[in-house]
């Protein structure tokens, strides 16, 4: 485990409270758009979309070298959403960043929409890899990192996995590959919200001790609070300074974060709220947004 010492902190561009507030506003808007899209589609995955929303926000607003006006820029940083079902809030973060109009967001999962139920790199600007079948995105991220090494490029590749997703054997094939090929331009973030469809990850899959497993597989391991932007900044910035080995960040998160009746509830993994509950959730998020000083 890699601890953060004060001398490290001085190396970071520590965000001030205004910057953090802006990120919180963006993440809250992303949750609102995601909830609206899922409600309209009468389907989708709110739980994991909300646990990951702050991580997407930090990456796209503060970390990734990407250009919304040139989504295929050759030397850009890459992001692969390995847990593809959690795309509604990612789509919202991409739209808010300017990759495509926010007017696309309410059309999520509709016939002819640019926003598919799971990410489609051919139809959505800003999506670097099609994904949705669990365990596959991390391998593609390894391939992108390897391509960067072959061409001596200095871009970095980030991928976000679910903790339940780590039950897929392919994840461990990819982790072994990344460490064996010294892909230090790869950062694997695991959204540990503790829940999967059939119950808790502890009950269903028995993933722990995840940190020790990742270390044993050759990763430099960091931990962060996936809803605290200072914590995210610390972990992502520390990971970036590692050379010679890939990095993993274990993100402690709350599934359904932001909507009280969804938080830590397994049944909100892949369900859309009815009209009444939609209004309750929307009201809560709008109140949070107002408290943060933001407006839609």
């Amino acid at each position: 485990m890699c601890g953060i010492v004060n001398s490290d902190k001085e190396m970071f561009n520590i965000m001030n409270s205004t910057e953090i507030n802006e990120l919180q506003i963006t993440a809250c808007k992303a949750r609102l758009y995601a909830l609206e899209g899922i409600f309209n589609a009468k389907s989708g995955h709110p739980g994991g979309s909300f646990s990951a929303a702050d991580i997407y926000t930090y990456l796209y607003e503060k970390e990734l070298n990407v250009d919304p006006s040139d989504p295929h820029k050759a030397d850009r940083d890459r992001f692969v959403l390995s847990k593809g079902h959690c795309c509604p809030s990612l789509y919202a973060v991409l739209a808010l960043k300017g990759f495509f109009p926010v007017e696309e967001l309410p059309k999520l999962r509709k016939v002819g929409a640019m926003l598919q139920g799971h990410p489609d790199m051919k139809s959505t600007p800003g999506i670097d890899m099609s994904s949705g079948s669990l365990g596959q995105g991390i391998s593609a991220a390894c391939g992108m990192a390897l391509a960067g090494k072959i061409d001596n490029k200095d871009y970095r590749v980030y991928t976000l996995l679910g903790d339940g997703e780590c039950e897929e054997g392919q994840v461990w094939e990819a982790l072994m590959f990344a460490a064996h090929k010294n892909l230090d331009n790869l950062c694997v973030i695991i959204d540990c919200n503790g829940l999967q469809i059939d119950g808790t990850v502890a009950e269903v899959g028995g993933l722990e001790p995840l940190d020790k497993k990742l270390e044993a597989f050759g990763f430099e391991v960091f931990k962060m609070d996936g809803h605290d932007f200072s914590s995210i900044e610390e972990a992502v910035s520390s990971a970036k300074k590692v050379s010679g080995k890939p990095q993993a960040i274990i993100a402690k998160t709350v599934k359904g974060r932001g909507v009280s009746y969804m938080e830590n509830q397994v049944n909100w993994h892949g369900a859309a709220p009815n009209a009444e509950l939609y209004e309750v959730g929307r009201k809560e998020l709008l109140e949070s947004l107002a408290e943060l000083g933001g407006t839609l």
Binding site: A74, V80, M121, D128, M129, G135, Q136, G137, I138, S139, A140, A141, C142, G143, M144, A145, L146, A147, G148, D151, G169, Q170, E173, A174, F177
Partner: peptide
């Protein structure tokens, strides 16, 4: 399985 995924990532980078 991982090999095919790595190939996909390489192809996505040209």
């Amino acid at each position: 399985g991982n090999m095919i995924g790595v190939a996909a990532g390489l192809a996505a980078c040209g």
